[in-house]
C-alpha cells in the first residue's frame, strides 16, 4: 500500500508544487501519503527539476493525461485536462516535456513505442491549440517507470499516462 501511494505521490507532489493547490482526486489521495513521504524526498528526484519551479499556473489536475488500454488517442477526459491548461501552457515560456508511459501488459519495447505515441497525441493537441512546438519535447519511458507498481486494473489505469513536466 505504501509503495503504491508513494509512487503516485512522487508525481503528484510536483503537480501540487506547480499548481499551488490540490483538489482533484488523485492529488488528494497522494497528498495523504505525501505528508509522510515529505516534499524533501521529492525535491531530490532527478525527474522533477521543476518542483522548485517558478510560478506556473497549470491547473490543479493538469499534469497527467490518462489513456485506455492499448490506446494512444486522447479521450474526452484527456482533452478537457489539456483544455483547462492550454492558456497557461501557451503563455508560459518554460520548456514542456511530455513523458509517455504504458502499463505493464505487453512487451517492453512495444510499450516504449506506445508511450511515445501517447506523448505525441498530447503534443499534437497542444500544438493544434497554439502551444509552440519548439518548446515541447517528448520522451517515452514505456513501462519502465510505473506510477503505481500494482498488478491490477487500478494500477494499470494510473500507469497509462502522459505526464507534463515543465522545466
Amino acid at each position: 500500500m505504501t509503495y503504491k501511494n508513494l509512487g503516485l505521490s512522487l508525481g503528484v507532489v510536483l503537480a501540487m508544487a506547480l499548481a499551488g493547490c490540490s483538489s482533484n482526486k488523485a492529488a488528494d489521495s497522494a497528498n495523504q501519503n505525501g505528508a509522510n513521504s515529505g516534499l524533501g524526498s521529492n525535491s531530490s528526484s532527478t525527474f522533477d527539476p521543476s518542483a522548485n519551479g517558478n510560478g506556473s499556473n497549470l491547473a490543479q489536475n493538469g499534469r497527467i493525461v490518462y489513456f485506455g488500454y492499448d490506446q494512444a488517442t486522447l479521450s474526452s477526459d484527456g482533452q478537457s485536462v489539456l483544455d483547462s491548461n492550454i492558456s497557461a501552457l501557451k503563455s508560459g515560456s518554460q520548456h514542456i516535456r511530455l513523458e509517455g508511459h504504458a502499463d505493464e501488459r505487453g512487451t517492453r519495447e512495444y510499450n516504449l513505442a506506445l508511450g511515445e505515441r501517447r506523448a505525441n497525441a498530447v503534443l499534437q493537441y497542444l500544438v493544434a491549440n497554439g502551444v509552440s512546438k519548439a518548446r515541447i519535447e517528448t520522451i517515452s519511458y514505456g513501462k519502465e517507470r510505473p506510477a503505481d507498481v500494482g498488478h491490477d486494473e487500478s494500477a494499470w489505469s494510473k500507469n497509462r499516462r502522459v505526464e507534463i513536466v515543465l522545466n
Binding site: L6, G7, S9, L10, S37, S41, E144
Partner: peptide
C-alpha cells in the same frame, strides 16, 4: 534489476 525504495525512488 529494478528496486523501488520506500520513497518510491527507483534504482536500476
Amino acid at each position: 534489476s529494478a528496486l523501488r525504495d520506500a520513497q518510491g525512488q527507483n534504482t536500476y
